[in-house]
Simulated assay, not measured.
Amino acid sequence: MGYVARVNTIPAVPRPAATVILVRDRPDPSGERPSLQVFLQRRVPTMAFAAGMTVFPGGAVDAGDSIVPARTRGPGAAEWGRRFSCEPGQAAGYLHAAVRETFEECGVLLAGPAGPPSGAGEPVLDDAAAHAARTGLIERTRTLAGVLDDAGLALRADLLHPWARWITPEQEPRRYDAAFFVAALPAGQAADARTTEAVEARWWRPADILREHAGGAARLMPPTWLTLTELAGFEDAAAVVAAAADRVVTPVRPTLVRKGERTVAVVGDREITLP
Score class of each variant (00 low, 15 high):
133 A>R: 15
179 A>M: 04
103 F>R: 06
135 T>Y: 05
166 W>V: 07
182 V>L: 07
117 P>V: 10
186 P>L: 00
129 A>R: 09
148 L>Y: 00
142 R>P: 08
138 I>Y: 03
146 G>S: 15
123 P>N: 04
104 E>T: 13
156 R>Q: 11
137 L>Y: 14
190 A>F: 08
108 V>D: 04
114 A>K: 11
194 R>I: 07
121 G>H: 02
147 V>A: 03
181 F>W: 01
193 A>G: 06
192 D>C: 15
192 D>V: 15
196 T>A: 09
169 P>S: 07
158 D>T: 00
150 D>Y: 12
139 E>K: 14
157 A>Y: 04
135 T>H: 10
123 P>F: 04
155 L>G: 15
102 T>D: 04
134 R>Y: 02
156 R>M: 11
122 E>T: 15
167 I>Q: 12
176 Y>G: 04
131 H>D: 06
124 V>S: 00
117 P>E: 05
176 Y>C: 10
192 D>G: 15
180 F>M: 03
121 G>V: 00
114 A>L: 06
108 V>H: 04
180 F>N: 02
113 P>S: 12
178 A>L: 00
195 T>I: 06
117 P>S: 13
101 E>S: 09
164 A>P: 03
193 A>L: 02
164 A>W: 05
166 W>R: 02
132 A>S: 13
143 T>N: 10
120 A>T: 11
172 E>M: 05
196 T>Q: 04
100 R>S: 08
183 A>I: 05
130 A>H: 11
155 L>T: 11
148 L>F: 01
180 F>T: 13
125 L>H: 06
144 L>S: 09
174 R>I: 06
157 A>R: 11
112 G>C: 02
194 R>A: 11
120 A>G: 11
175 R>E: 01
194 R>G: 05
197 E>W: 03
170 E>D: 09
139 E>C: 13
161 H>Y: 11
102 T>P: 15
151 A>V: 07
101 E>G: 08
100 R>P: 09
189 Q>T: 04
159 L>T: 07
161 H>F: 13
189 Q>M: 11
158 D>V: 02
133 A>T: 12
159 L>R: 05
189 Q>W: 12
160 L>A: 10
183 A>Q: 00
179 A>Y: 02
156 R>L: 06
159 L>P: 14
115 G>Q: 05
114 A>R: 13
154 A>V: 03
169 P>W: 02
121 G>C: 08
173 P>L: 08
162 P>M: 03
135 T>D: 13
100 R>F: 09
111 A>I: 09
98 A>G: 07
189 Q>C: 01
148 L>R: 08
128 A>R: 15
148 L>Q: 02
100 R>Y: 01
147 V>I: 05
152 G>F: 00
156 R>Y: 15
173 P>E: 02
